[in-house]
């Protein structure tokens, strides 16, 4: 249950970052930093999500 809540919180933070950082911080970016930001965010989200789904338990009950 705790893992579920933590993952829910993580997911919401990732989505919030995906909308806010490009407009608040990287709006006028002159390099590929914005592209890299989204790419790194996705890779991080992928790693956390794959760890989370490796621990799916409820559904086998």
């Amino acid at each position: 249950m705790r893992a579920d809540r933590l993952y829910l919180l993580w997911g919401l933070i990732v989505l919030a970052l995906s909308y806010t950082i490009p407009y608040l911080v990287l709006r006028d970016c002159k390099s590929l930093l914005l592209y890299l930001f989204w790419l790194i965010l996705t890779v991080a989200h992928l790693i956390v999500s794959l760890t989370y789904i490796g621990r799916w338990r409820e559904w086998t009950d």
Binding site: L39, T42, H45
Partner: peptide, 24 residues
């Protein structure tokens, strides 16, 4: 690059939704 953001936001959300609700 905004177009990459548009498409990657879909992927971020889908990874989240699938990981969270797919087993249920």
């Amino acid at each position: 690059v905004g177009a990459f953001g548009f498409e990657i936001t879909y992927l971020l959300s889908t990874i989240f939704l699938l990981s969270y609700v797919a087993p249920k």
